[in-house]
């Protein structure tokens, strides 16, 4: 696999604030890569420098071996960017929007229209963008970013402000895009989104990459306990402690939670006692990884 993006020691400061403070990463062609972190972590600034919208103070960016800064017209047809705030021409219908953007790349109108179908907006084609809902606007803006068939797609917080249903619909669209062989780079502050979509994530905080790798292995490497919860009152905390060695027990009056690194014996012991009412089992998530890395709770 060849690398689509190579970033080395990238830095950008705004006055005293070091928005991006020396980050390096590489994204392989065809990968779904996520940049993850709370608001203000430096994700957008990073993305803007990679896209060639902002000049880094220092460090290098190369996309398919070329520098995106200054504006590089050879590179531009190969990348598609969905901006955080949906950028639309005023008072144009969805169809007119996507046709306009497509024509900037020499893509014919008929091909542009197909993209409305891909993101499920055929019915909205004659609606002006001002009349579309937030989710429809996001999907339109993704379609506009993709209409010219770029090899590399940047999506900045594509699902922020969407209701859960709309988010999940959008995830399907993004998975499809990636499965067509396009490299996708996504920033998000939703950890579950990164976990569900990305082949690899980089966790950012305060302008630095704290850790990167496939979400599953980040979680696994954490070696965090599995949390088993049952309804409160089924079992006393003391009885729960005797189930297996090294079980940490807490009871908040709603659920009794057992944290253990060896869930199998605990679960079978619970089953023996017929104490499985309200059972839920949660492994560690990226949230725990973030907590571990920063020593603080994750707050989007």
């Amino acid at each position: 696999m060849s690398s689509a993006i190579k970033v080395e020691e990238l830095r950008k400061s705004y006055g005293e604030l070091r928005a991006v403070d020396g980050i390096s990463f590489e994204v392989q062609a065809g990968e779904f890569f996520g940049i993850l972190g709370p608001n203000g972590a430096g994700k957008t600034t990073t993305l803007e420098m990679v896209e060639g919208l902002r000049q880094p103070d220092s460090g290098t960016v190369s996309l398919f071996g070329e520098s995106p800064w200054p504006r590089n017209p050879r590179l531009l047809p190969r990348i598609g960017v969905q901006l955080q705030a949906s950028a639309f021409f005023e008072r144009l219908t969805a169809r007119e929007q996507i046709r306009t953007f497509a024509s900037l790349y020499g893509v014919p109108a008929r091909k542009a229209d197909e993209w409305l179908g891909v993101v499920g907006l055929e019915d909205m084609a004659d609606k002006r963008n001002e009349d579309l809902s937030g989710g429809q606007q996001q999907r339109l803006s993704i379609a506009c970013a993709l209409a010219h068939g770029p090899d590399l797609v940047f999506l900045d917080e594509p699902t922020s402000g969407l209701d859960p249903q709309a988010r999940r619909n959008l995830w399907d669209v993004l998975r499809d895009i990636n499965s067509q062989g396009r490299t996708v780079v996504l920033t998000t502050h939703y950890l579950d989104e990164a976990e569900s979509l990305c082949d690899r994530v980089a966790i950012m905080d305060h302008g630095r990459i704290l850790e990167s790798g496939p979400p599953a292995s980040l979680v696994r490497d954490l070696d965090a306990p599995t949390r088993i919860s049952i309804e409160s009152g089924v079992l006393t905390a003391d009885a729960a402690r005797t189930l297996a060695d090294g079980v940490e027990v807490s009871d908040d009056g709603v659920s009794l939670t057992l944290a253990t690194r060896t869930p199998a014996p605990v679960l079978s012991a619970l089953a023996e006692r017929d104490a499985l009412r309200g059972l839920s089992v949660r492994g560690a998530t990226l949230e725990d990884v973030f907590l571990h890395l920063t020593g603080r709770e994750y707050r989007a």
């Binding site: 531009l76 901006l83 953007f101 506009c144």
Partner: peptide, 18 residues
């Protein structure tokens, strides 16, 4: 101004249009 505010200029800058 509105094209700058609405990020249309930014979007155009990312397209190969001169």
């Amino acid at each position: 101004v509105t094209w700058r505010q609405k990020k249309i200029l930014r979007r155009l800058r990312l397209s190969p249009v001169p």
